[in-house]
Each structure stands twice: as structure tokens, then as C-alpha cells.
Design a protein around this nucleic acid. Structure first.
Lengths: 354, 354
DNA sequence: TTGTAAGCGTTATCAA
DNA sequence: TTGATAACGCTTACAA
């Protein structure tokens, strides 16, 4: 078949007009059963397939949603992308993934990339952009942000209670007798981002337990890949600090820290307990298995897709801020006797209007 | 900006025709510097953005390539997708990812999904389709297959020497004194797929060393996720077999097996050595770190994109079969004294014409 | 070197 | 309930 068959061909074959074919294909009402059958069998026998470029041009919609994330090589984002593709699919939408490498320039590019004209809207997970970049957020298409409301009230956000969750994770360690808790993934200059919030949650838990925060236990890490966890943990240990626990701001950092601890002869959890954040699958298979704060990725995905579709349908609608729930998964890396009952645990989903 | 600005608007602003604007936008030759500048500044001041639907409709090309893979939750495919997006990007193409779940029905769907009419061609990694499905492979668009040439000579393939690589991995264990080597990920009824080839390679190595294959050491696993490795390893151990090594047909299976072995009190590598296949990042951070057969994902990605673009440009061109190289990464999970020098190691890329 | 105009395949407006 | 026809925004012969 050298040249594609068009609605014209189908219409000719079925003895109807193109409009009727269009009506059938789009499930419009007011099509008699007989003509529908005739059209459908014509479509079948000709092997007709809709030309989506023509449809998109005419409709002014592509039927595609963009997802801009740091990298699919980060397990959390790979698993999130999986859920996001599925969620979009359930809504009859196609998801187009774009990687930013968590680099500021590429995150800015994502807002104006060629993919924007291929998609009806964007779900954006910025990591490098900060408060000072607010003015750059002038998307050409509807936008939903993933992660903290660090920029603006102008767009809908899907996020979680990072501060509470980090506090719960840290309390989980404190309840098991740990006092010298290192934290890995700190962004020193950040004020309102995910790293800052999780650090605040960590500090909340320490304060609540009357533990003084120790700067020697703060492990900085710009990106949050495994090697960054390795470097940060090594720096902490090299400085002579003697942590009895580690809170990784995400699971890959925690995996990196775990790797370093074991390489240097520490037993986990006996000498040093470790907890991560995100709940990627890898945490169920590491040795020891890794305790973590599990985030509902499916819920994030479904919510983000739904919010974006609302924004596309009604660009003037009120931006919304939706929190998804979390849950502490206690595994072998923190399997220690609990000294006192801990209240912190999980939270249900919640919405608050901006 | 309620209504999008078009080339018409730009042309009017610059005082030229749409053809000239088009010439500038598409970097056509024969455009004077002055008009180019006028057009560019008009584009700038109007904030003009190309309408890709209109371009695609007119050109008959979307500029998008499809990638159908089992799931982004499988680390190997997530890392491959990362490389593939980057490779397509370098060619000025946009990559559209589609998940099949490695289910036969969805793999068949992928060939005719709505995404096919959004893309100029498809890079397809089938896992569930077998020889008997050859006749279903009648794509509507150019196609490049990833993995073994299990179906047909009609399409270009990018693959690796699975049999040789599996033989090398198994020999790696044998060279370290292991004789009772379990293999995890077997597909019993498969004849020509990846699982069959890797099993053949395993058996080649055993035969070469004069070791008799033992069915009790064959661990079946349909999909190749971590839990499948857990189940297969448990079955082998429950049956009373006493392996002294495990060859995982991919890294996630090996991670699952490793997890079971450690949970059941085996020391790795002292009691049981483990080697995987793929070279995902996780293998560098597991405890112990996992030996594996590293596949050059970047090379697969670049090659597949290039082959697909050739096929799109010239649909009548000769299908090609390209092997990418592999390398045994020896890590802690097989860190044992080597009894005799082993020849098997790595292989350079190679091409053979079909 | 630049302009004119036709047409890509679909949907939408109106009329029949 | 169906049909004719005009867009949608771009590229590309062909003309100038």
C-alpha cells in the first residue's frame, strides 16, 4: 500500500460522504445502524487508519500529554513514568516523555521544546529550578507541576507532605534508639524545594526528641543518584563522624549510603540503621531490605493526568494543590527493637486549595 | 494569546510571503541575510511557534519514532529507554514510548496501536511473541526489532551474541571452580528466543567443561522481574538441589535469586556464586555487588535509531542484522580464586548481513 | 531570491 | 440522518 487510504476512499467504498465516515469513526450520535455497518466494513476491507496529523490540525488538539522528568535511569522516575503512561492511556491520551537530566538549562528548555507543540499540556517534575526561576514559568500550554509548590500559585501541583513524611522517617529511627542520625541529600542553599522540606522534617523529628542537629551529619548531594549517596556518605564518615543511622532523602541515595557503610565494615542495621524515601522496587530486594517512605506513584500519576486534562479543557480553572499519601515501610535496614511507641505512620490523600 | 500565531502572521509582520518564512524556518538555502533577519525578528517578537500537526500533515512525516518495550519498571528497559530518547534526540527525532507488559496480546496491539499513526516507524522489543506469530508481523510502518532474530528476515534487527555471552558468563563461574550451576529464567518451550539462546550458551559452557546438565538446576521464569527470580530460586532450593552457583538470565532475576539465597542463609559468593546479565546500574550497588554481562545500551540505542531512520528513508532497503558487543563485569558475587585461565571475555560489535 | 496557490486528511458549519 | 464545502497551518511546485 504505497499511498494511505483516506476517509475519501472509505466514503466512496461505502457510498456515503466523508462527513458520515467521520461521524462513525468518532462515535457521533445520529448515525443509522445500517450506514454505520456499511462504513465499518468499508474501513475494514480497505484497512483504513486515521491520519492523526490531520485530525490534530483540524481539532487543535494532539491527544498527547508531555511528561518532563530528570531521567528514566532514576528508578523512581522510571516507575513513575510507567504509572503515568498507564494513567494517560486509561484516559485515551498518549504520553510523551522528555528527560531534563535535572539540569537547569534543560528544565527551562522543556517548557519551550519542540515537544510542546506536539502535546496539549505538560506534567513537569522540576528538580533544578528554584524560586528565582519563577518568572521563567510561562508555559505555552497547560501545566501541572509535580513536587513542591516552590514556584507559584499559578499552576496545579501534585505533591506529598514531604516535611511530615521526612519527620516520620526520622522518628522511625529515633524510636529505635538512634540519636546520631545522618541525613544524605542536603541542598544547602535551597529554601522551598523537596530537599529543604525533607530536611525540615528531619530537623522537626530531632527537635521533638530533644536531639541537637549536628552539621557533621549533614551529607550534601546535588543530584540524587546512587553515586551521589556514595560520595556524601563517604564524606560524612571521612570527617570522623560516627552516625548510628542514616536518613536518605531518596532511595537511591540510601542505596548508595548502604553500599558505603557495608564496604567500610559497618553492619546494617546493628551498627547503622538506614531508611530511604520513595519506595522503589529495589528497596525490597537489597541486602538488607531497605526501610523507606513509600509514595503512591499510581495515585500521583492518575491525579496529575486528571488535573492536566481539566486544565486543558478549562484553562481558566482554579489551580489546585493535591497531596498524595505516604506510608512508612519498615524493613530489615531498621529492624531494631522499638523503645517507645511512635505515632507517626501514614497519611491519607488530601487536598487543599491554593 | 488566545489564537496561535501562524506563518501568515509572521510573513505579514516581516513583510514577506509565507514561503519565505518557511524557507527561513527550515534552513533552506537561497535566503538573503537581510530577509532572514527580518523574519527571525518577526518570529521572535510574535512568539511564533511551528504547528507540528500542520507540518506533519503536509510532509507525511511526524518526526516521531515509536519504542515498544515491556515496561519501564524493568530497570534494563528504563535504562535502554533513557539511551534511546537521547539517541533519537541527537537525530532530531522525538521518541514515543509504549509499554506492552511483555503480554502477547499487547505486543500484537503495539503493531497497530494508535501510536503507529503518530510515528514514522517503530523500534520493537518483543518478549512474548514467538516464532508462531511471524505472520502477525505486518507493520504499517517501518520496523526495527530488538533482540533475537526470532521471527523473520524481513526486518532489521539489533541484537547481541546471546549464546556466546551466556557461555562466557557460565564459563566465568566454571573457571572459579563451580560445577553445580543453576540457571534462572528458563522458558521451556521456547526455541529461538533470548531465553533459549542464553540457555544454549549455558549448556555450551557446561559441555565444554565436561559437566552434565542437571534439570533440577533449571529455574523456569516466564517474565524476568525480581519476584520471578525469587520464585524460581526458591523452587530450585525447595527441590533439594544444592547449587554452588547461579546464572541469572537477566540482572533482575539474579537480584531475586541473590535475595533468596541470602535470606536462606547462603553466603554469596562463598557458598553460592551469582552472575547476572544486562549490566543494569543496580548491580554496582547490591550487596554483594553483582557480576554480570554488560550490554552496551548506548550502542543498541544509536544503532536502532539509525537503522530505523534508514528504513524510513528507503523502505525497500535490505534488512540488516547488527550485533552489539558485551563484556563480563566481574564483581563481588563471583569473587573467587580462578582455577584456570578463561578465554571467554568480551566481543566487539559486529554486523552480519541477513 | 521570493511570491502565488494548491493540497495534505480531517472536522465543523451549515443546508438539505 | 446525511452531504457539500470551507477551514486548520504548513510545504512545495511552479511562476515571477
Amino acid at each position: 500500500m504505497l499511498v494511505a487510504t483516506t476517509m475519501q476512499d472509505v466514503a466512496a467504498r461505502a457510498g456515503v460522504s466523508v462527513k458520515t465516515v467521520s461521524n462513525v469513526v468518532n462515535d457521533h450520535p445520529h448515525v443509522s445502524a445500517t450506514t454505520r455497518d456499511r462504513v465499518l466494513s468499508a474501513i475494514d476491507s480497505l484497512g483504513y487508519r486515521m491520519n492523526t496529523s490531520a485530525r490534530s490540525l483540524r481539532r487543535g488538539r494532539t491527544g498527547m500529554l508531555g511528561l518532563a522528568l530528570p531521567s528514566l535511569s532514576l528508578p523512581y522516575f522510571a516507575e513513575l513514568a510507567d504509572a503515568m503512561i498507564a494513567a494517560a492511556d486509561r484516559q485515551g491520551q498518549v504520553l510523551l516523555i522528555e528527560q531534563t537530566g535535572a539540569e537547569r538549562a534543560r528544565e527551562i528548555d522543556a517548557l519551550r521544546s519542540v515537544r510542546r507543540s506536539m502535546t496539549d499540556g505538560l506534567i513537569f517534575s522540576p528538580l533544578a529550578l528554584g524560586q528565582q526561576d519563577e518568572h521563567l514559568l510561562q508555559p505555552e500550554a497547560p501545566l501541572v507541576l509535580l513536587g513542591e509548590r516552590i514556584f507559584t500559585d499559578r499552576f496545579s501541583h501534585v505533591t506529598m507532605r514531604n516535611r511530615e513524611a521526612a519527620r516520620a522517617a526520622t522518628s522511625h529511627l529515633i524510636a529505635r534508639g538512634r540519636r546520631r542520625i545522618a541525613v544524605v541529600g542536603v541542598h544547602p542553599d535551597e529554601v522551598v524545594g523537596t530537599a529543604a522540606l525533607r530536611l525540615h522534617g528531619y530537623e522537626d523529628a530531632l527537635a521533638e526528641a530533644g536531639i541537637r542537629a549536628d552539621p557533621a551529619l549533614y551529607g550534601e548531594a546535588g543530584p540524587w543518584y546512587r553515586p551521589d549517596g556514595v560520595r556524601a556518605m563517604n564524606r560524612i564518615l571521612d570527617s570522623g563522624a560516627k552516625p548510628d543511622a542514616v536518613f536518605g532523602m531518596n532511595d537511591t541515595l540510601a542505596i548508595g549510603a548502604l553500599h558505603v557503610l557495608q564496604s567500610r565494615g559497618y553492619r546494617v542495621p546493628e551498627d547503622v540503621a538506614v531508611i530511604g524515601f520513595d519506595g522503589i522496587e529495589e528497596t525490597q530486594y537489597s541486602a538488607p531490605t531497605l526501610s523507606t517512605v513509600h509514595i503512591q506513584r499510581d495515585e500521583i500519576a492518575a491525579t496529575a493526568v486528571q488535573l492536566l486534562q481539566q486544565t486543558i479543557a478549562d484553562p481558566g480553572s482554579q489551580p489546585r494543590l493535591i497531596d498524595v499519601g505516604f506510608q512508612i515501610e519498615s524493613r530489615a535496614s531498621t529492624d531494631l527493637p522499638v523503645l517507645a511507641p511512635s505515632s507517626a505512620g501514614s497519611s491519607p490523600p488530601a487536598e487543599q486549595h491554593i
